[in-house]
Design a protein around this nucleic acid. Structure first.
Lengths: 282, 282
DNA sequence: ATGCGATATCAGCGGGACCGATGACCGTGT
DNA sequence: ACACGGTCATCGGTCCCGCTGATATCGCAT
């Protein structure tokens, strides 16, 4: 008899929450076309449309809303069941770090997978810019960290993403300002360098309207419309717009998993394996 | 992240209930090897053995018992969700008939699939020997019925199964009786003919110790050890044994779906399509 | 020990999911 | 009105995975 695929339901829930197949596909770790086909398969097994496709994202249909409720419930029960059964597994603790941008993009999904598989592992997490993360690794205060790198040829590259300009919707007039107000994180960060380099090589004048390592702060400023900010494409919240017109293009960057080097605990090894297995898009 | 396959859980639940991969495979409608591999895949994703394999069936491990509880709960919720979503579907009623043997073998699984897909359809079911079913079809008291046929070449054949001798465990001494006591259903039935024909052509003497069209009655007699009975292989309950030694082999038979011929309601068509799609093993 | 029935395993095949690229469509800003 | 940047859908090609059918292996019972 026909049976729903929980994998599809999980993707559907992420699509529903993010309101976009493209964004969801980045969190899931599949291409956009794959997730698009997943949604179509799901609609076929249900027999009814679940999504309204618009030019800018997707909206749930009535049936879609109904399914979402069931899906969340089912997935919740499923994850409980899985952790109960995996209860005999690994114990120990891991310290894991990543930039704040990642922590609101694909990392939740990543960690959820790890924690339901190893529910007895104690996970410590630190959000900080890449430079800080390196220090923590060096001092052995972190077992491993996801860090960004400008070098796209690195062979340990797990995934690539792109920096994007973000502003409030609708399009703010500050773009017309001669001296563009920017909200950037600390000047040691990769996105800071990427933004300022891009502006400079485009010959565009700008000023630092806001500087902070708090992503929430940057996004708040962007939301207020007083400055343009820069962040990771996958981390752009629903209510902010990605701006490409009239602004210089921003570079891609790579994501690698760095570890403390020395002897890793079993739990740390497991987390590393999990990340290396789940993170790559290909 | 890793996610359980509800299809596998469904198979697992059936295997657990039937205590045998072979029997379960007949209800599921897959080959024995397929179900065996399904169980292996499930064990791999869980990471622990779920079944003790013995020479005569399978038993659940402790982890298997735990999983079974979760599986039943998950499948229950899943089926609820599916019927809720399919609620907009077909309405109407269907009358369906089949021999009692089928009704305790693969038919429950078959109807469960149909009813969760079309929860608003009212289903009437009649259990009777094939001859009776034909009469009911002719009088339009049934829309369709699964009936057995000795003709294995029929092109509308959906599936084949085999008659088997059943007796209580352990091996009863009545097998040594010169005149073998048999518990058979009415003499118009296929299994009655198959059994008596087999005995006669083997030159074996027998007597009808019990005759009834009630399967439960036949099995009760077999269980008591006072007679040998005959039934469909897929319908043999856990606590009875299939006997092959010292008894003549029984023939295969075919299963076909017969309908009342005339204009079928939409619900009847849907049930027919469902059965034709789900029943074949290949 | 031997035979039977059960499960496990194997090669081969077929279908299906994914990727990458392309195409259609929409909203927006000029 | 039109071009543009974004979205989702579609398509061919590839690879992997599950099923079948046949065979090997195991365990129980006589």
């Amino acid at each position: 008899m026909t049976v729903l695929d929980l994998q599809l339901l999980r993707s559907f829930a992420i699509v529903a929450r993010s309101g976009s197949i493209s964004i969801a596909s980045m969190q899931i770790g599949r291409t956009q076309s794959a997730v698009s086909m997943q949604m179509r398969r799901l609609e076929e097994t249900i027999g009814e449309p679940l999504l309204h496709r618009t030019g800018s994202g997707v909206r749930l249909t009535v049936v879609g809303e109904r399914l979402l409720v069931h899906a969340e419930a089912l997935l919740g029960r499923h994850d409980e069941a899985l952790s109960d059964l995996a209860g005999t597994g690994l114990r120990g603790s891991v310290s894991f770090g990543c930039p704040e941008e990642f922590s609101i993009a694909f990392v939740p999904h990543l960690l959820q997978g790890f924690l339901t598989r190893y529910p007895s592992v104690e996970l410590h997490m630190i959000c900080a810019p890449t430079v800080e993360l390196r220090k923590h690794l060096h001092r052995r205060r972190l077992d491993m960290a996801l860090i960004s790198t400008p070098n796209l040829d690195e062979d340990a590259l797990l995934r690539t993403d792109r920096f994007v300009w973000v502003a409030n919707r609708p399009r703010p007039d500050i773009l017309r300002h001669d001296v563009l107000p920017l909200a950037l994180s600390g000047r040691t960060t990769l996105d800071h360098r990427a933004a300022t380099d891009a502006m400079r090589s485009a010959g565009r004048r700008f000023r630092l309207a806001y500087a902070s390592d708090s992503l929430a702060g940057l996004l708040a400023i962007a939301r207020s419309g007083h400055a343009i900010s820069v962040t990771t494409r996958a981390a752009v919240p629903n209510d902010l717009a990605i701006v490409t017109q009239d602004l210089p293009p921003l570079p891609d960057f790579g994501i690698v998993l760095a570890d403390a080097g020395a002897q890793a605990s079993a739990a740390a090894k497991a987390l590393g394996d999990h990340i290396r297995a789940e993170l790559p898009v290909v």
